[in-house]
């Protein structure tokens, strides 16, 4: 579904991604983790073309992301993304947040879009908030709406960029619950996160990055059992102590 081949990126002279290669198959849930500055956010943003890269290739469902003639808008409508800071559109009501892209990009009718939107709000447990505005909801609620917004486009794969990092601790679970359900339904997911409990529960594979390179790329059990690299061991020991 997603294939990254030797992806490298520089900001001027500074290299942020170093020869990254990995694959995510249909139905897989891959967690990308690592210390700050390891490039994991940059990597996931390259997958839907929000960040450019100078070397290597990325394919999403067979379409090359880096090539000039790729219709990025079309590609992005098939790839759902959830951001660290939710990024709901503040001037639109919740239901409008869910329907605007359906109407303008997928050219669905307003009726269809609203139906789909309400369905998804129901699914994330927020159907009674449809007329409210983003700033009237809590962080956890906003993020759940953001997930619904991404799902409204019927994506083939979902990207999550640190979805719970900006949330107060008591709201983290409500979002993770939605993500766990999504995984159980077979959605292909690439998740950048620090939440190792989530990874242990639903991930198929774990990718560990450090300073722009992929250091580990193994199954969940191997990663949590006996990671081979010293760096990964260090990382795990530090964050798993609590």
């Amino acid at each position: 579904m997603i294939a990254l081949e030797k992806v490298s990126k520089w900001y001027g002279k500074f290299q942020v991604l170093n020869d990254c290669s990995t694959e995510i198959n249909k139905g897989e849930v891959v967690v990308v983790c690592g210390p700050s500055g390891s490039g994991k956010s940059t990597l996931i943003k390259c997958v839907n073309g929000l960040e450019t890269f100078q070397q290597g290739e990325i394919f999403v469902n067979g379409t090359s992301v880096g090539q000039a003639r790729t219709n990025l808008s079309k590609l992005r409508s098939q790839v759902g993304m959830v951001f660290q800071h939710f990024e709901l559109f503040p001037h639109l009501s919740i239901i409008d947040n869910l329907t605007i892209a359906q109407i303008k990009v997928l050219k669905r009718s307003k009726q269809e879009a609203i139906e789909k939107g309400m369905q998804l709000l129901e699914r994330v447990g927020l159907s009674n908030q449809s007329a409210k505005f983003p700033s009237q909801l809590s962080g956890g609620q906003q993020q759940r709406v953001a997930i619904a917004r991404a799902l409204a486009m019927d994506p083939i794969v979902m990207l999550f960029d640190e979805p719970t990092s900006a949330l107060d601790p008591e709201m983290v679970n409500e979002v993770l619950d939605v993500m766990v359900e999504l995984a159980a339904e077979g959605m292909t997911m690439m998740v950048v996160t620090h939440e190792m409990g989530f990874a242990r529960k639903v991930a198929n594979r774990v990718v560990f990055m450090d300073r722009g390179s992929i250091i580990e790329d193994t199954t969940k059990n191997e990663f949590f059992g006996t990671p081979r690299s010293k760096r990964a061991q260090q990382f795990l020991s530090k964050i798993l102590s609590y």
């Binding site: 079309k74 590609l75 790839v79 951001f83 660290q84 990024e87 605007i100 892209a101 990009v105």
Partner: peptide
């Protein structure tokens, strides 16, 4: 992030300006 979110749902750049 607003521009990114707009692009991420598949808006073209002009749509991002117009709607977001």
């Amino acid at each position: 992030g607003q521009k990114s979110a707009g692009l991420a749902v598949g808006f073209t750049l002009s749509q991002v300006y117009l709607y977001v």
